[in-house]
Design a protein around this nucleic acid. Structure first.
Length: 664
DNA sequence: TCCCTCCGTCGGGCT
DNA sequence: GACGGAGGGA
């Protein structure tokens, strides 16, 4: 095979020749990883061991050694992570680092597919279905089988979508997925497979792809079109994959294809932090990496620079409870520190009150709000706290849970934009038409058929004109024609749609004042994109967190507190961390209690949460919960059983006359 | 044909 | 709390 060398020769520079003093800034293992040049490498990096730092400095070092920034591909778990890393690399070196290509697998695949879609028989303007779009599409197809299904218990659209996705991401046949994870639907497996086929056909016929298609279609493209594979892979001299423990087999295969020309693939991750098995990740993959890649160099980072020893003691204690053992024991030089606290509250309301009080107290003592985070298992676990924070006027930003583009009113607006970019998007048409008075599923479907036959998007000339809704169709057509002229001015296009949509929104929702505010925020946000097409793609691949939008628009003078699902908190850290709703049935989730493998994943999730904290960590739970039946007693997470008081110190909440106060 | 309401069932984490 | 199916009135 042809050998490639760095422009300045095979021997890298001496330490003194670099602008950055790598030797002084990094420990020995980090330095080894940063200086690694060719061939496969695996960096096992425990929580807080400077993994991100290592990646940033490796990017900078490669650039310093003359590698073209655009020949470096950095695959991360979120867009945010890629941006942060490249910004920091720019900070330590210079602007060249900003030209490094970075993003998620989905992002990079989307980019490639838009270039070569024709080779797979897709239009270059194919649109992306986010999860909810995929659900709508499946629902639509499911309805066409309604006759056959009458009176039978058949999986819902989300369940069907989950099955299809599992088949792709775990690389199993649909039959295997149903048999192993959904045995209750085995009687329907033929119908489900039939539906899956229809879904597949719908997507190729209408020029749309869902998230999973981005991955499989890219693999298909690269395997089947040799010239493209060679071109794409030759473009990526250095490929790095962050959070490798959470990539699934399909993504691992893609990483291998992307690096198939130069074979310089470095993957970084921590098997103890694998929390995406539900998306097909398997932490054994990271451990098997050296077997798959001959002459793989393995580097281990074990010194933790983030947390105090007491926080690591708790984290180590927890991860040791895993059925499957991890050969990891984090250590730190920060031996001093408070014990993590275990706070038992009489009810959820009191839990929220406690957190609010303690936050305010810590802020008073000098910890900024943005250096504190509240973490939880499910998006809804923070509702009570959010309510309390609003009452006390404490600014916060929530990650995870509902996204901006998932709200019904935003989806309505997006549907109008989607039909402009891709007029074949029937699901978007359907949504747009159903908003009109007097139009239901039946009429909408007739109108869409008519549009298809006449190859137009102008409904004003439709022959179904005598009906009472003719006037509405005319104004819809006017709006659509207007947007079509604003392809490069997404702000204006969105404004045009929202002006048209506001009256519909007011009729449709009781809580329209809040929603109209969102619509205005959307206009401002859309201004930041160069085209409608780009706006739609970015919003799908990198959905904005609902409260992030508010914060951006009404920028507070104070940086907000962070509320986050544990999944979304991955890779981040704060001075003070609260883990709330630490209850059995929440973490571990009630769905996983029968499966030891799933329980282990829940345990790793708690481990990830604990290791986010630098100095203060509080684990809290209420002893009663409310449900639709009334109040009932709840138990703390089983993971907290038998954890010594020398590791996790119990706190008692005491009621003072008048106000609740913290006891000790 | 559409639109509203009632009721039983199910429910998650993310790109 | 959201969805899906069923039943009624407009």
């Amino acid at each position: 095979m042809k050998k490639f060398v760095l422009q300045r020769g095979t021997n890298r520079k001496g330490d003194a020749d670099y602008r950055i003093a790598y030797r002084d800034l990094l420990n020995e293992q980090q330095y080894e990883a940063v200086m690694h040049n060719y061939g496969p490498a695996l960096v096992i990096a425990g929580a807080g061991t400077g993994k991100t730092r290592t990646l940033i400095y490796r990017v900078a070092r490669l650039v310093e050694d003359g590698a073209a920034p655009s020949s470096i591909l950095l695959l991360t778990f979120t867009r945010r992570a890629a941006r942060d890393m490249l910004d920091r690399a720019t900070g330590v070196l210079d602007d060249r680092c900003n030209q490094v290509r970075g993003g998620t697998f989905h992002h990079y695949c989307n980019h490639l597919l838009h270039q070569y879609a024709d080779r797979l028989g897709f239009p270059p303007n194919f649109t992306l279905l986010d999860q909810a779009d995929a659900h709508d599409t499946i629902h639509h197809i499911r309805a066409s089988l309604a006759q056959q299904l009458r009176g039978k218990r058949f999986p819902q659209k989300q369940t069907l979508a989950a099955m299809f996705s599992a088949a792709v991401n775990k690389q199993l046949s649909l039959y295997e997925v149903i048999a192993s994870a959904y045995p209750q639907f085995m009687q329907h497996h033929e119908t489900i497979e039939q539906l899956h086929k229809k879904y597949f056909d719908y997507k190729s016929k209408n020029g749309v792809m869902d998230f999973d298609d981005l991955l499989i279609n890219t693999r298909r493209l690269l395997l089947q079109e040799e010239d493209i594979r060679e071109k794409v892979a030759a473009n990526s001299r250095f490929v790095m994959v962050d959070e490798y423990q959470d990539t699934n087999n399909l993504q691992a295969e893609l990483a291998s294809l992307f690096s198939s020309f130069h074979r310089n693939l470095m993957v970084v991750g921590d098997d103890a932090q694998s929390i995406y098995a539900f998306r097909g990740a398997n932490f054994h993959n990271i451990l098997a990496f050296p077997e798959q890649y001959e002459n793989c160099r393995v580097i281990k980072l074990e010194e933790n620079y983030r947390s105090t020893q007491p926080i690591l003691d708790l984290s180590n204690t927890l991860i040791n409870k895993a059925k499957e053992k991890f050969e990891k024991k984090l250590f730190t030089k920060k031996t001093e520190g408070d014990l993590p606290g275990l706070v038992r509250a009489p009810c959820e309301r009191d839990q929220s009150r406690f957190i609010t009080q303690l936050l305010l107290q810590l802020r008073e003592q000098g910890t900024p709000l943005s250096e504190m985070a509240v973490l939880f298992r499910n998006g809804r676990d923070s509702y009570d706290l959010e309510w309390q924070l609003n009452k006390k006027n404490i600014p916060f930003q929530k990650f995870g849970g509902q996204k901006f583009a998932e709200a019904a009113h935003i989806r309505d607006v997006l549907a109008h934009l989607r039909i402009i970019v891709n007029p074949d998007d029937n699901i978007a048409w359907n949504r747009v038409l159903l908003l009109l008075d007097g139009i239901g599923p039946k009429t909408a479907s007739e109108l869409i058929t008519w549009l298809r036959l006449n190859k137009t998007r102008d409904l004003s000339s439709s022959d179904i004109v005598s009906r009472s809704y003719k006037k509405q169709l005319d104004s819809l057509s006017t709006i659509l024609a207007g947007i079509a002229r604003l392809l490069d001015q997404p702000g204006k296009a969105v404004e045009m749609v929202t002006d048209y949509y506001k009256p519909l929104c007011e009729k449709r929702f009781d809580d329209h004042p809040k929603r109209v505010k969102d619509l205005d925020a959307f206009v401002g946000l859309a201004n930041g994109y160069v085209s409608l097409d780009q706006l739609l793609q970015e919003l799908t691949l990198d959905p904005l967190d609902a409260t992030a939008v508010e914060t951006e628009v009404y920028a507070h003078e104070e940086n907000p507190l962070v509320l986050s699902t544990i999944h979304s908190a991955k890779g981040l850290e704060w001075n003070t961390v609260f883990i709330i709703q630490c209850l059995d049935g929440v973490i571990p989730s009630g769905y996983s209690v029968d499966d030891p493998v799933a329980i282990d994943e829940e345990l790793r999730l708690l481990y990830v949460a604990c290791t986010r904290a630098r100095e203060h960590l509080f684990v809290t739970y209420p002893i009663t919960r409310e449900s639709s039946f009334g109040e009932f007693f709840s138990n703390p997470s089983r993971f907290l059983d038998n954890v010594s008081e020398n590791v996790l110190e119990p706190w008692v909440l005491e009621e003072d006359p008048g106000q609740k106060q913290l006891g000790s």
